[in-house]
Structure formats: C-alpha cells, structure tokens
Design a protein around this nucleic acid. Structure first.
Lengths: 214, 214
DNA sequence: TCGTCAACTATGCAATTGCATAACTTCTAT
DNA sequence: ATAGAAGTTATGCAATTGCATAGTTGACGA
C-alpha cells in the first residue's frame, strides 16, 4: 500500500484543525467536508476520523482554536511585561484592532461559529466560557486604570464599562475586517482609543501598533 | 394526486424566504436543505425549485431580506415624521438596539451570511450595496446634527464619525444579541447614546424605546 | 365550457457525505 | 528481534441532497 511518514514531532492533530480553519475561511462551512479538510491537510480522510471522534468534534476543536487566536491580544497584554495600567489598556485596544486580529479571515471564522452557537450546544459552551474570560480580563484592565487614576468604580460600574469597551472594540474590529480594503487600520485604532478615553474619562498614551518581526 | 391550494393573494415566494430564514436561524445553514425549507413552508420541495432558479438564489434572496430587516430602523428614522436632527440620531440608536433588531435570531442570520461573504460573490455584492447605503445614511444623520449645532464637518470627518458610530452601534448590538439573557437592553441603549455623544461632542435627548403596538 | 398556462406535487437519479471497516506501516517497549 | 500498539491509507456503504422530469390541479380568459 502507499507509504507514509509519521509525524510524531509536530502534532498532526493541529494540522487538521488548521486545515479545517483554512477550509471554513476559504470555502465556507458547507463546503468544509471531511474529505476537503483531509485534502488540505495532506492526509487521507480516514485519518481525521481516527483523531477526532466525529466531524462535529473536529469543528468544535476548530472553534476552540479560533477563540484562542482571538484571545491572544488580551493574553499578551495580561501576561506580558509589567506596564502602567493606561499603557496596558491602550496596548490591548491596539492589539485587538491590528496585527493578526485584523484579518478578514478571522472574521469569517468567527462569524461561522457565532452563527451556529444556538444551534449547537457545544458551540454555546465554548462561547460562553471564552467570552466570560474575555470580559473579566477587560474588567481587570479597567479596574487597574481606575486605581491608577485614584478613582473607585463599583462592580456594576466596572461591568458596565467592560461591556461598553468590549462592544466598541468588537464593532471596530468587525467593521475593519469587513472593509479591510477601504478602511485605514490606524484610523480604526485612533477611533477605538478615543472611544475608550471618552467612556472612561481618562487619557490614554499614544501607542503605535508593534511591527511584527519579519 | 394530492390536492393543494393556490396562494395567489399572499406571496408564496415570501413564505419560502421566511421559511428559509427560520430554518437557518433554528438549525444552521448546513441543515437548511431544500427539503427542510419546503417542509417549513408547508409545500413540496419541487415548488421551491419552481420559484427559485437554484438553492443559491433562494439563500441569496434570504440574505437580501435579512439586510432589509436590519435596515428597517434606519429607514424608519429617515422616512419617518420630521424631527430635530438630534432626536433623529438618538432615535436611530435606540431603534438599532431594541425592538426587532435586538433579536438573537437576527444575529444568527446576519452571522451566517457574513461568514460566507467572501466565499460567495453574490453575498459580497449584497453586502457591499447594503452597507454603503447604511453608512451614507449615518453620514447624513451626522451632517444634520452638525448643522444644527452650527458646526461644519468635512467629508473626511463625517465619514470618520460615521464609521465610528456605526462600529459602536454594531458592537453593542452584537453584544446585546449574544447575551440577550444577561445584558439589559436599556443599559445597552444608554451606553450607545453616551458613546455617540462623546464621539460627536454633543448632547442627545433622552429617548425611550417606542412601545410596539400589540 | 373549454383550453391553456402557471402553480404545484411526486418521484427518481447522480453526486456527495459522514462514517465504518479492513488492511498496511511505522514506532516503541521489552 | 519481535510483538503489540498506534498511525495511516484505501475502500465501501447507507443516507442525504440538489436538481431534473413528468404528471396533476386550479385559475381564468375567450
């Protein structure tokens, strides 16, 4: 029979998940069949079934990976080098609206999963968990800024602000991805920063998006 | 053969589009087959093919209908009774975040189509046209407010503001629909109004969401 | 009344799809 | 070495799906 090479070092499961995401982003969820994913991953279709209990599990894994990608800016800010609170918040805004996050491909993926949230309990779970963590992190950022300002915000107030700020960032991200060819990225960023400043009643430092290492 | 009733009065094509939307919102785009739609519409599956050139056309028609629904608040404000500019803008914000627009079902539909925009040229077209009209209307609202304030905004400035305001509203809408059971609608509205005020540097009148006639 | 056209149903088919199964290959522990 | 476990391929099947086709029914003008 045909020969093959094993891939014990780099995880082939991750390859398949990546192929799934490519497939969904390129041709949509409907055309994302087990065979199509297998072809992209360069493996036989049987192998997918070997690594994933079912197609649904594969797609769910792809969703989890998407959430992971989208949470990266937040994680980078939270776990990065210590910074003043204001700079951290500004950095979060910038990272959310530029770099890998500003990719239309990511929007396609996100929209695909969001659209199925209420039709697929697995998705609903992944979403709930991911979003809660996201909002809590935002609340923490806000609380730090408030503390640095010498102000005190109640729990409700912090939550309200977190909702508002997340909404603004999400909306700008959405618009930026949807018309990536028309809308200037740095414009989105400055709008985002200005909105956050207005919502919190603070001044944020001018942060430039980091240049990616080539 | 089985008997049937003709429906010349009310448009059966619209019925099928509605059934398609129900189907997509309920069970997702993948489970939205011609047969499933036909069953929901209470017709034979052959009839769908009779009225629509292909399944793709049916889905595209459903997308157009969705855009139509989402544009309704804007249309209502633009074509409604004459109001002061500030009230019109406020009314637009409120209508966008409450009433039929705050329905999670609408989010599912929107996300479904958005996710396929770049995989389906028909969708891309529908989206581009619909969104351009939407942003232009927002720009008009903004220009009117500026005029009423005795201020003058350049074309670039108006466009920038329209992008920002649309982003804020979209983001709040998104968040509201995604966690409709956790987030208070009137809170979203007040956040939206406050953001718009901050972005434009104006005060908006306090507008309550209109009670729908029962 | 009757013919004719559009609305509508019923049925079938070729292609696709998720999944199962069996066979083969590589790796690793002993 | 060697056996067994795990990775991998190839193949097949039952179910589904979009679409085509043929036939049936109702509306309506002449």
């Amino acid at each position: 029979m045909a020969s093959f090479r094993r891939a014990p070092d780099f995880d082939r499961k991750a390859d398949m998940i990546e192929a799934t995401l490519d497939c969904i982003a390129d041709v949509g969820i409907q055309a994302t069949t087990v065979r199509a994913v297998a072809a992209r991953a360069g493996v036989s279709n049987g192998l997918i079934r070997h690594h994933f209990e079912s197609k649904d599990r594969l797609i769910t894994a792809a969703y989890r990976r998407t959430i992971e990608m989208m949470s990266e800016p937040m994680l980078a800010v939270m776990k990065g080098p210590p910074q003043p609170a204001h700079a951290r918040l500004a950095g979060f805004v910038v990272a959310s609206l530029s770099g890998p996050n500003a990719d239309p491909r990511l929007l396609s993926l996100w929209a695909t999963f969001i659209s199925q949230i209420h039709a697929n309990p697995h998705f609903a779970r992944e979403h709930r968990v991911g979003y809660a963590a996201y909002r809590e992190a935002t609340e923490e950022l806000i609380a730090d800024v408030m503390t640095a300002e010498g102000r005190i915000a109640s729990v409700q107030e912090r939550r309200r602000l977190a909702i508002a700020i997340n909404a603004v960032i999400d909306g700008l991200w959405l618009e930026g991805c949807l018309s990536a060819d028309e809308i200037d990225e740095s414009l989105q960023i400055s709008i985002g920063l200005r909105c956050v400043e207005a919502l919190l009643g603070v001044d944020l430092p001018d942060v430039r998006p980091e240049r990616k290492e080539s």
